Amino acid sequence: MIHGDVLRVFDLLEGRAHNASEGTESGYFVEIARADRPGIYLGVSQAGEKTFIVTSEQSQVPPPPLRLASIAVDYGIECQLREATSSRLVRVTVIRCLANEPGIIDVFTAMCAVLANSFNDRVTEREVAEELRRWSTLFWRLQERVETDVVGISGELVAIAASPNPDLWISAWHSRPNDLLDFIFDEAQVSVEVKATRSGKRRHTFSLDQIQTTGSLSRYVASVPVQFAESGESLADLIREISDRLNNDTSRLKLWEALSQVCGAGLEDVLARKFDVLAAKAGLAFFSADDIPSPVVERPFPTGVSRVSFHVDLDGVESFDSQYLDGLILV
Rank of each mutant, 00 (worst) to 15 (best):
H3R: 04
H3M: 07
D5N: 02
V6G: 01
L7K: 09
F10N: 01
G15E: 10
A17I: 08
H18N: 07
S21C: 00
S21K: 08
T24E: 09
T24W: 02
E25M: 06
Y28L: 15
F29P: 06
V30F: 11
A33W: 05
R34I: 04
A35Q: 14
D36R: 08
R37E: 09
P38W: 12
G39S: 09
G43V: 03
G43P: 03
V44L: 14
T51V: 15
I53K: 02
T55L: 00
T55F: 02
S56N: 03
S59Q: 08
S59A: 15
P63R: 03
R67D: 15
S70N: 12
V73M: 00
V73G: 07
Y75C: 10
G76N: 02
G76R: 04
G76W: 13
E83A: 12
T85N: 15
S86G: 01
R88G: 15
V90G: 01
V90T: 10
R96G: 07
L98A: 08
A99D: 11
T109F: 06
A110K: 04
F119E: 08
D121G: 04
T124F: 08
V128L: 02
R133Q: 14
T137E: 09
L138N: 03
R141G: 09
Q143R: 09
E144P: 07
E147Q: 06
D149L: 13
V150A: 05
G152N: 07
G155Y: 10
E156S: 04
L157T: 08
A159M: 07
A159F: 14
I160L: 03
A161V: 06
S163V: 04
S163E: 02
P166E: 12
D167P: 13
I170P: 05
S171E: 15
R176L: 15
N178P: 01
D179G: 05
L181C: 07
D182V: 07
I184L: 15
T197Y: 01
T197W: 01
R198L: 11
R202E: 05
R203V: 12
I211Y: 01
L217D: 12
R219D: 02
Y220E: 02
V221F: 03
V221Q: 01
V226A: 00
F228T: 01
F228C: 08
A229T: 15
A229K: 10
E230T: 14
S243W: 07
D244I: 11
D244R: 13
L253D: 05
L255W: 11
A258H: 10
L259C: 09
V262C: 10
V262H: 09
C263D: 06
E268I: 13
K274G: 07
D276V: 02
V277S: 10
A280F: 08
L284D: 02
F287Y: 11
A289M: 09
P295F: 00
V296H: 14
V296K: 14
V296S: 15
P302V: 06
P302N: 04
V305L: 09
S306Y: 12
S306T: 13
V312T: 09
D313L: 05
L314W: 05
L314Q: 00
S319Q: 13
S319V: 12
Y324A: 11
L325C: 13
L325V: 12
L330N: 10
